[in-house]
């Protein structure tokens, strides 16, 4: 474990709970893409299947449980409890256009052709594009609530910190996983446009609105 990975995991945890609290407190999921949340739930479920078979540490197991539970809870709040506030008219990204190609790629490019490894690879590839429905929804509505932009900033920062973690681990531990690094770069690049808007607008107290 290193500081980049620890801060990255905490940033990820923060993002998930900022969103969960926003929906719970405001009793509304306006401006939030349910499709992205479904993809994130799929990412965690396919990645943490080894939760009961491969114990790494208390921290590792605890975080896996928290990530799965909080993301499933978010999906529940969006599609069941506060379904009336779900903005399905703007959350129109066709996620099958993500899941199918990513599934195919996981079969073709992986470290090991075993079910668990292919599911892990699928999860890594899917996570890199899972935010697209959310970014697409913001581009359609033209703006995002400030709390939603904080959620996105923390979520985007987590994988950027993981990139630093991989640089650290490469030089100090000789650890390198090309699949995770490439997917992590794609994932972080997708946030660049948002990071620019966040830093130039939200940091100065303005609302995040995309140029019309």
């Amino acid at each position: 474990m290193n500081i980049f990975r620890l801060v990255g995991d905490l940033s990820h945890l923060l993002a998930i709970f900022v969103l969960l609290l926003k929906i719970w407190k405001s009793r509304s999921c306006a401006g939030v893409s349910g499709k992205s949340q479904i993809l994130f739930a799929l990412v965690f479920i396919t990645r943490y299947l080894d939760l009961f078979t491969n114990f790494i540490s208390v921290y590792n197991s605890l975080m896996k449980v928290i990530f799965i539970a909080s993301t499933v809870a978010t999906v529940y709040l969006m599609y069941i409890k506060f379904k009336a506030t779900y903005d399905s008219n703007h959350d129109t990204f066709r996620i099958e256009f993500l899941v199918v190609p990513v599934g195919g790629l996981a079969f073709l490019v992986n470290h090991d052709f075993t079910p668990l490894e292919i599911l892990w690879t699928f999860s890594i590839y899917l996570e890199s594009v899972a935010i697209l429905p959310q970014l697409f929804m913001i581009s359609k509505t033209g703006e995002a609530e400030t709390i939603t932009s904080h959620y996105l900033f923390a979520l985007g920062s987590y994988r950027a910190l993981y990139l630093l973690n991989w640089i650290y681990r490469y030089y100090f531990e000789g650890y390198f996983d090309l699949i995770a690094v490439v997917a992590g770069c794609v994932q972080t690049i997708l946030y660049c446009d948002f990071f620019y808007l966040y830093i130039t607008k939200v940091m100065w107290g303005k609302k995040l609105s995309l140029p019309a």
Partner: peptide, 10 residues
Amino acid sequence: NDSDVNKDEL
């Protein structure tokens, strides 16, 4: 190959 390395990352 990498898959043998324990997947210790989240």
